[in-house]
Design a protein around this nucleic acid. Structure first.
Length: 850
RNA sequence: GCGGCGGUGGCGGAACUGGUAUACGCGAUGGAUUCAAAAUCCAUUGCCCGCAAGGGCAUGUGGGUUCGAUUCCCACCCGCCGCACCA
């Protein structure tokens, strides 16, 4: 008998699937469209093609493919496409280092990714393949930009932005992690520049509200997004500076503490700052402070543990609730890009204001007394040590607050807001941490922003029929603080689409997250050269029924894609408001407990393992390591173990096939000859039972949160049972039929993970194509067994086991239990207090000494 | 500091609604096969006592509820991830 040769088997089936375009599906109205089945859109996150795929990709696509296969075999018309997120900085940085143009390196990587995905046997509809760097794709990225521009959702403005000195480009807030550039780790600085933004804040409320509409997303991803959007309810209150004649609105979540405001702070970037200090004598000191803050890294400024700094402005504002004049300061703990860039400071009830007041020796006025109901616990204060309890952020009765004294602060909150409203000095207000999405980049390898700057007409969108604005070729990709596209003079100089006079193209390119915010729509109508997609195609396939990817995209990508779909829905281009109905986030694979990285030299190349043990083993292994949503540590022994299991299945299949040939028996599909199931006994019956048990277990665990590790374990158990019974069964015909059924069942159940081997074995056993068969259904008759084992406990400790007939009643079970040898011993000299019988499971006799 | 997730054999992990803790895999040990090895097959494998029958102890720690707790409740310890001057 020959050996299990995965490479041979895998190549053969991959050719069949490619030649027959097995995984291709048609849109409504196209030839081959099957309207009788419900649709299912299974999608893994778009890979960024760089070098070769790594194990993270292997896991993601193995998990996604298993789901796709399972859905197909459960009667769904599954769309399962693939593409590449092929614009982006790494290819460009590589070009600067090596001189290889981004286009060349990118297309080489794409070829490698495509080849490996094929070698892994992922069931992809290749007719829908896309790459975001191609003009055929980014034409429509630009088209969407223009739709947003026309709606006022894309705009250009001067703003303080986060600048990465190394990459020489601006970054979105989301791309700054701990004050450092997410990509290169360089400390980020702030600069004031004209940049393009998408108005994500316009959808803040809907982005929050529509979590309701999702079917199943991991709770922690929703929490992370909620925190990111950061909705807070409060009030906007206006403080007036009479001397300067300026009004300063502030946002506060604690209007109940208004009477406790003892000073007022504005951000160093506040636009009114200069005018405010003019003529106070503090100008120079303020200017120096503002400059020193500007030099600080974003990282340092965000450190809440460092001492509070600031400068008094020599001005006061009037507290609208009590007419008090309170001093103004500039301090960097107030941020310009949250709220209004100014705060009323209530040191008695806010930790930051308290710290500042201590540093500057400012008065602290308590306006909420400790909660009398919470005496002793936390906020409660002993009489006399009031002062030590500050700052106090809990609830309690109002004090020192005029006519609100005595009210509970929660109630005072509403009353004060009401009063502000009547007086026209404030109103309720909702604030978000979420800011607009900065999309322009001063880099080369991205989609050009389709705008022309005309001296007479201003910003003019490129007409849709002139799209795409093709990315020109340049010699030098190195960033110089402005886009490398500036060098393409022939391209930059153009005619104004509106008046025809000489104009300049916008030279910034788009953030690559723009490309990946809509690709799932392009798949639905990938060949369309008249539109980005047809509304019919989108209506048919959307939303994505199952989205799969890493948690690292929990905020950025998912939030942007959600924003896009909402904007597109409002413009009538799609009919859904959420792109991904169900989200599954896979855990990270480590090696020796550490994150894989080239610098550590602990990377695992999937290609090596595919060459050595086959794609089926590699795929099955990543699904077997543990629950897929959790991480796992890659071990060579683990892959070998799975390879061994697949070999065992293959070997026993060959044995059964050969035994059949020698007796001239024929295949009968995944079913048994008439009456065979009923007449089998002994090992044959046990084997059939095990097969049905495996079907039942695999089906349940598959549907219960994709617990692939236990699905695979169930098939392993079935294969072990086949080996246990095979010697006794293979010699006679009924036994062989049972073996054939069990082997074919194992192949059928392992197919979502090891599709090549499964196809080979299933064909050997039944002559049929496993991917064309329905997912098996367990026969409840075969799950039952005539006798059950019942555990007998005495005082909660297992003392023996008994075999009883399936229908045995309580009395019968108890009688047998008491007779069991070891139980009887423990019952000696006792009297029974209580008898607990759980049918089919256990008996517990509660006794005490007589 | 706030929020989330997790702690089970030598290791990765199982245990559905409270009912046989340790499925499955790895590793280890022994045996069969072989001239030999690899591969394969079979058996054993939580810890402790015992020749055995059997007994005791074990799911991070300490309590509680229950006939019975890995599972439910309370308090604590440890690890990982996210957020963090957001007014």
């Amino acid at each position: 008998m020959s050996r299990y040769e995965p490479r041979e088997i895998e190549g053969r089936w991959q050719r069949v699937w490619a030649d027959e375009e097995t995984w291709q599906v048609a849109n409504p109205g196209q030839p081959g469209y099957d309207g009788s089945k419900p649709k299912s859109y299974v999608l893994e996150m778009l890979p960024y093609p760089s070098g070769e795929p790594h194990v993270g990709h292997l896991k993601c696509y193995s998990v996604g493919d298993a789901i796709a296969h399972f859905r197909r075999r459960n009667g769904y018309e599954v769309i399962h496409p693939m593409g590449y997120d092929s614009f982006g900085l790494p290819a460009e940085n590589n070009a600067i280092k090596t001189g290889v143009p981004p286009l060349v390196a990118t297309e080489k990587s794409i070829d490698s990714f495509r080849r490996q995905f094929t070698e892994w046997g992922i069931s992809i509809d290749w007719s829908r393949e896309l790459a975001t760097h191609t003009p055929e794709y980014y034409r429509w990225t630009q088209w969407i930009f223009l739709q947003l521009f026309n709606e006022g959702l894309a705009y250009r403005t001067q703003a303080p932005v986060q600048w990465c000195p190394k990459d020489a480009t601006v970054l979105a807030n989301e791309q700054v992690v701990d004050g450092r550039c997410e990509r290169c780790g360089t400390e980020v600085v702030t600069r004031n520049l004209r940049q393009w933004f998408f108005r994500t804040t316009a959808y803040a409320e809907q982005l929050l509200a529509d979590f309701e509409k999702l079917e199943s997303w991991p709770e922690h991803v929703i929490t992370m997004q909620k925190n990111w959007i950061g909705r807070s309810e409060g009030a906007e209150v206006t403080f007036r500076c009479e001397e300067a004649g300026l009004d300063f609105p502030v946002f506060t979540t604690r209007p109940d503490t208004l009477f406790g405001a003892t000073f007022f702070v504005i951000a160093p970037e506040h636009p009114e700052l200069e005018g405010l200090v003019a003529g106070t004598g503090a100008e120079q000191q303020v200017q120096e402070y503002v400059n020193s803050v500007a030099r600080e890294s974003v990282q340092a400024r965000g450190d809440e543990s460092r001492p509070k700094t600031g400068v008094p402005l020599g001005r006061t504002v009037t507290n609208p609730v009590n007419g008090e004049e309170i001093p103004m300061f500039v301090a960097d703990y107030v941020l310009m890009d949250y709220g209004t860039g100014a705060v009323m400071a209530v040191p008695a009830h806010d930790e930051r204001d308290f710290a500042f007041a201590e540093a500057f020796e400012l008065p602290v006025r308590r306006v909420i007394a400790p909660d009398p109901d919470a005496a002793g616990a936390g906020g409660g204060a002993e009489p006399g040590d009031d002062g030590e309890q500050l700052p106090y952020t809990g609830d309690g009765p109002m004090v020192d607050s005029g006519r609100f004294d005595g009210l509970n602060n929660r109630e005072a909150y509403d009353r004060i807001v009401e009063w502000l409203n009547e007086e026209g000095r404030g109103q309720t207000s909702i604030n978000y941490r979420l800011r607009d999405w900065l999309v322009s980049r001063q880099r080369y390898w991205g989609a050009p922003i389709p705008i022309v700057h005309c001296p007479t007409c201003g910003m003019v969108p490129v007409p849709e029929d002139q799209l795409p604005v093709v990315l020109p070729e340049v010699e030098d990709y190195a960033p110089k603080g402005k886009s490398p596209l500036e060098a393409a003079t022939d391209w930059v100089e153009t005619d104004c689409p509106s008046c025809g006079s000489v104009a300049r193209r916008e030279t910034d390119t788009m953030d690559t997250f723009v490309d990946s915010s809509w690709y799932f729509l392009r798949y639905l109508d990938a060949g369309n050269d008249q539109a980005a997609w047809s509304r019919e195609a989108a209506d048919h396939w959307m939303p994505v029924d199952q989205y799969i990817g890493g948690v690292e995209h929990a905020i950025l990508h998912l939030l942007y894609a959600r924003f896009f779909i909402k904007a597109l829905a409002d413009m009538g281009h799609v009919g859904v408001v959420e792109p991904f109905a169900n989200l599954f986030t896979q855990g990270m694979i480590t090696r020796d407990g550490a994150k894989m990285s080239k610098s550590k030299g602990n990377t695992v190349s999937p290609a090596d393992y595919v060459a050595r043990h086959g794609a089926d083993a590699a795929r099955t292994y990543v699904c077997f390591m543990g629950p897929p949503e959790r991480g796992g540590d890659w071990t060579d022994e683990g892959v070998e173990g799975v390879h061994r299991f697949l070999s065992r299945l293959w070997r026993v299949s060959s044995e059964v096939a050969e035994a059949d040939v020698s007796t001239g028996a024929s295949s009968t599909g995944l079913s048994l000859p008439e009456g065979l199931a009923e007449r089998t006994t002994g090992e044959a019956r046990e084997l059939l039972s095990k097969a049905h048990w495996a079907i039942d277990k695999a089906t349940r665990d598959f549907t219960r949160g994709f617990q692939f590790n236990t699905v695979i374990a169930a098939v392993m158990e079935l294969v072990n049972e086949i080996y246990r019974t095979r010697d006794g069964l293979i010699e006679e015909e009924d036994g062989r039929e049972c073996l054939r059924f069990a082997v074919a069942t194992a192949a059928s159940l392992i197919q979502p993970f090891a599709p090549h081997l499964a196809s080979e074995v299933f064909e050997q056993m039944t002559g049929e194509r496993v991917w064309e068969t329905e997912w098996p259904v367990a026969d409840p008759e075969m799950l039952r067994s005539d006798t059950v084992t019942i555990v007998v406990q005495v005082n909660g400790k297992v003392r023996d086991r008994i075999e009883v007939g399936e229908g045995a009643d309580k009395e019968e079970i108890l009688a047998l239990a008491r007779e069991a040898e070891n139980v009887a011993r423990h019952l000696e000299g006792t009297e029974t207090v209580k008898e607990i019988v759980v049918p089919g499971k256990l008996v517990n006799l509660v006794v005490r000494p007589a």
